[in-house]
Design a protein around this nucleic acid. Structure first.
Length: 851
RNA sequence: GCAGGGGUGGCAGAGCCUGGUCAAAUGCGCUGGCUUCAGGGGUCAGUCUCUUAGGAGUCCGAGGGUUCAAAUCCCUCCCCCUGCACCA
């Protein structure tokens, strides 16, 4: 009977139709004149490698749904998209396929954009940002120069992962078990002059700023750990022979009297001097070599090793002489690269002491037991009360930490300090496909920044991709330049910037993407930033999100903008799995979103991705879920169509009748659904909205089908409910919703013209009543058969106080059950004994009892 | 090791903050009925155990506790995931 029953073909046609309409009428272009409140919604922009995968599709389903929700709620939504277009895969593709990375990237961007279109994304493409365009990366270079002026960018020697065969630096992630991921040759450490950004200047602010952000707890904690703040004290120990000082860092000055030896990192700067000419020199040198080698080759040696240097230093608090060791477990890059060892109260020191038979001295006693250095099996690392600590005996650890800190400072042998684990950001890459660093090395003047007016420094195209070395160096036009200062012979920096620089400010550029004079105007930033909702994967929890926060603060201090934090609220979406494993080519469990869209259209894919799991949790892809999503959309389609048909039917003349229970129910249920769905959307728990919508769909259809000749009022109710339903579902299934919106006789787009329904008060009692009522009706159905033979009476029992809810029920029952007499009462027909309320006896549900 | 998040019915996944209305939403799967439906569409019902029905019993990782009452609060233990990993 359905001339327009929904098939996947129809669904796909609908999608195409509305995508075309949206495009034609520029539905999602921001109208800046509207004077609505702004809402900046952003998804992490993709690296355009190959095609869109399911993880992307999920990300954009979430973002697009939320954008649509916000738009319908009266916000002027900035929802842009762009491409993180610089990066290694393009360069590797270039090496492999002998094409220019630019070509490869552009091709992929095109394919991504087609995907977005097919998906029905509601971006305003006028603001597209592509990081490999000179108009964009020019500003990377400009920022670099500004940073340089302020001392925020600097150059220093730093050990990097170096593949001797490919002749290039590798990122940490590209080192697999000590070997180059591509050519499998051993990676070595190499000291190279590298450019850094001084992110450590912002350690404290980056840490403090986390507190006010609406971010997932785990992300905040990850950043906190990465910054790794710890407060402690630097203490000078004098070398016995020379009197030279070696500084150590400790967070536990309360254990200072328990120090029994010192350990230096293998690459501690004073180590070689210390052993020079001694008989330990050879052994120490061998040890250093081995340790460095282990580190280079990525050997994770949990076992603690060390060598005695034969030298002694003096513990400044008690003048005890202690041995100086070199040990593999001491890190040169944290603290001072030297530690005081308190084996009784530090597990690592304890293990080391046991191994090399070094003294153990207890200086902290726990509350209710007594430690004995001889019999201890592990270090006591908690706080306690000081012993063997001269004037500090009897003081509790926490108090002692403070008092000894003051005391050490007073005596000028210690200095309170704060240490952070975070290191400055190494931005140099010996790679082609990135932003050239705007620096010139002059034989006379040294390091000279490029003049601002010469920006952008464009990436050369006359390069060879041989697979070894930095391709830029093969350019004949790029390297040789005149010094901007002295006009003398000079050479251009061939390193490019880490691509994380590109993604550290792209969200700012969206506010003013066409600006030729500046990276962005202050007014536009003022207007749109910060990002109200940022959506992306947890894998960026540390790097990208930390760098972007740093950049925002650094640009603020350059007076380019006035915000402190870029992303107010962060949603980190879970991975898409298949059979419990991450989708990957190697496992072969990839599901291509395009296949799903080709088979069912975008709405099914979007609905599936949103309804099957909360955005934050992992989503285990199930092939069965896809037809289920289709079924849901069909049910919606049928319900709305049932309303439309019924509306066209004859109208009952007698329209004065008061609203029936069903009318009230429909009304109340609609209100409830609006309330719930709105709540769920605000919480961004889209999947939880589905069960409510599902119920409303079924009820609406039943309502429409039951009422043969609806009154005007009832027609109105159907129309209202159907409209509401279509709006509530439209963030999930925008295309079908447009179609239904049109079918319901509405003008304009549901996407842009519909207003999200208001949350109204409703009588929850009506809902309860109907649910009980339905329950009873079911029972009536069962009784029917019996009634025809012997029974003519029904006795309805309702729990006390519920009676008034069931007005109209007896008549209904009479009509439907064929019973002649119905006794409707609150008295109890069964043997229910209120006195005998055992644990699990509940007051009883409304039911029907036969007399 | 440290930190964070979890363990709910055949499966996925709510509920737990704010204890009762929870045998526990919703979807999938399964079973059966209906539908001029002639194979994967639509629809209704059932789907822990017992019961003709009313109802009863057992249940939310394990074990305790608090309470008139616990999937929900507290303690202990076991297991899983994720991040950092010798940071002094």
């Amino acid at each position: 009977m359905e001339t327009d029953s929904l098939t996947t073909e129809v669904l796909k046609q609908i999608a195409e139709k509305w995508q075309l309409e949206w495009e034609k009428q520029k539905a999602f272009q921001i109208n800046e004149e509207e004077g609505k409140p702004k809402f900046y919604l952003l998804e992490m922009f993709p690296y355009p490698s190959g095609n869109m995968h399911m993880g992307h599709a999920r990300n954009y389903s979430i973002g697009d749904a939320f954008a649509r929700f916000k738009r319908m709620n009266g916000f002027n939504v900035l929802y842009p998209m762009g491409f993180d277009a610089f990066g290694l895969p393009a360069e590797n593709a270039a090496i492999k396929n002998k094409i220019n990375p630019k070509e490869w990237t552009e091709k992929n961007i095109l394919s991504f954009k087609q995907n977005f279109k097919k998906f029905g994304s509601s971006y305003d493409w006028r603001r597209e940002v592509v990081t490999c365009n000179p108009e964009y990366y020019k500003w990377n270079q400009w920022f670099f120069l500004k940073f340089l002026e302020k001392g925020m960018a600097y150059r220093k020697k730093s050990p990097v992962n170096w593949c001797p065969s490919c002749k290039t630096v590798l990122a940490n992630e590209q080192v697999e078990q000590g070997r180059c991921w591509r050519c499998k040759s051993k990676v070595v450490f190499k000291d190279l002059e590298q450019w850094f950004f001084r992110i450590t200047d912002y350690s404290e602010e980056l840490l403090e700023g986390l507190k006010d952000l609406e971010w997932p707890k785990e992300v905040k904690i990850m950043q906190e750990n990465w910054i790794g703040k710890s407060e402690g004290i630097l203490v000078d120990f004098k070398i016995k022979e020379s009197g030279e000082k070696i500084q150590i860092f400790t967070t536990r000055p309360d254990t200072l009297f328990g120090v029994t030896f010192m350990v230096l990192a293998p690459d501690h700067p004073k180590l070689l001097d210390l052993v020079k000419g001694t008989k330990q020199e050879k052994e120490v040198k061998e040890f250093i070599e081995k340790s460095m080698h282990d580190r280079i080759s990525g050997v994770l040696d949990q076992e603690k090793h060390g060598v005695n240097t034969g030298k002694y230093c003096v513990n400044p608090v008690n003048n005890e002489e202690i041995s100086i060791y070199v040990g593999n477990f001491v890190l040169s890059e944290y603290g001072t690269g030297a530690i005081m060892s308190v084996p009784a109260h530090d597990q690592r020191d304890f293990e080391f002491a046991k191994k090399y038979d070094l003294p153990i001295k207890v200086v902290i006693q726990p509350q209710n037991q007594s430690l004995d250095a001889e019999t201890m099996e592990k270090a006591f690392v908690e706080v306690g009360v000081l012993v063997n600590s001269q004037q500090f005996n009897g003081i509790k650890s926490n108090e002692a930490i403070k008092r000894m800190g003051d005391w050490l400072e007073e005596k000028k042998i210690g200095k309170k300090t704060t240490e952070y684990k975070i290191r400055d950001w190494l931005i140099s890459r010996q790679r082609y496909w990135g932003t050239p660093i705007p620096i010139i090395y002059c034989e006379k003047c040294g390091v000279v920044p490029v003049n601002e007016k010469d920006l952008p420094i464009i990436l050369p195209t006359d390069v060879q991709f041989t697979g070894t070395g930095n391709p830029i160096e093969t350019s004949k036009t790029f390297t040789g330049v005149k010094c901007p200062k002295c006009e003398g012979k000079a050479r251009r920096e061939t390193d490019t910037m880490d691509t994380f620089v590109d993604s550290s400010w792209y969200f700012l550029r969206y506010s003013d993407p066409k600006n030729q004079k500046e990276p962005f105007s202050k007014q536009e930033i003022e207007k749109w930033l910060p990002v109200d909702q940022y959506i992306g994967g947890v894998e960026h929890a540390i790097l990208h999100l930390l760098y972007a926060r740093f950049f925002t603060k650094a640009l603020r201090d350059l007076n380019l903008l006035e915000i402190d934090e870029p992303f107010n609220s962060l949603l980190s979406q879970g991975m898409v799995l298949k059979e419990g494993a991450k989708m990957s080519k190697s496992i072969g469990n990839i599901v291509d979103p395009n296949e799903i869209m080709d088979a069912y259209g975008p709405d099914v894919l979007r609905f599936y991705l949103l309804s099957v799991a909360m955005p934050e949790t992992e989503l285990d892809w199930s092939d069965q879920g896809v037809p289920a999503a289709f079924k849901f959309i069909t049910r919606l389609w049928n319900a709305v169509n049932a309303c439309i048909e019924r509306k066209q039917g004859k109208s009952e003349q007698n329209t004065t009748a008061t609203a029936t229970l069903q009318d009230e129910y429909l009304n109340a249920l609609t209100c409830k659904t609006v309330e719930e769905v709105t709540k769920r959307f605000n919480e961004k728990k889209f999947n939880l909205a589905v069960s409510n919508l599902s119920t409303l769909i079924d009820v609406l259809r039943e309502y429409a089908e039951t009422i043969k000749e609806p009154s005007e009022k009832q027609k109105e109710a159907m129309q209202d409910t159907a409209e509401t339903l279509v709006i509530l579902i439209s963030p999930f299934t925008p295309h079908v919703s447009e179609e239904l919106w049109q079918k319901l006789g509405k003008k304009g787009f549901a996407s842009t013209n519909a207003r999200w329904p208001e949350v109204k008060k409703y009588d929850s009692k009506v809902l309860e009543t109907i649910e009980a009522y339905k329950k009873i009706s079911e029972d009536v159905e069962k009784i029917k058969g019996i009634a025809k033979t012997s029974l003519s009476k029904a006795f309805i029992y309702l729990i006390p106080g519920e009676l008034e809810k069931f007005r109209g029920l007896p008549a209904y029952l009479k009509r439907h059950s064929g019973l002649e007499t119905i006794i409707f009462s609150t008295s109890d027909p069964s043997k229910y004994d209120p006195k005998n309320k055992s644990k699990s006896t509940k007051p009883g549900r409304p039911g029907i009892y036969l007399e």
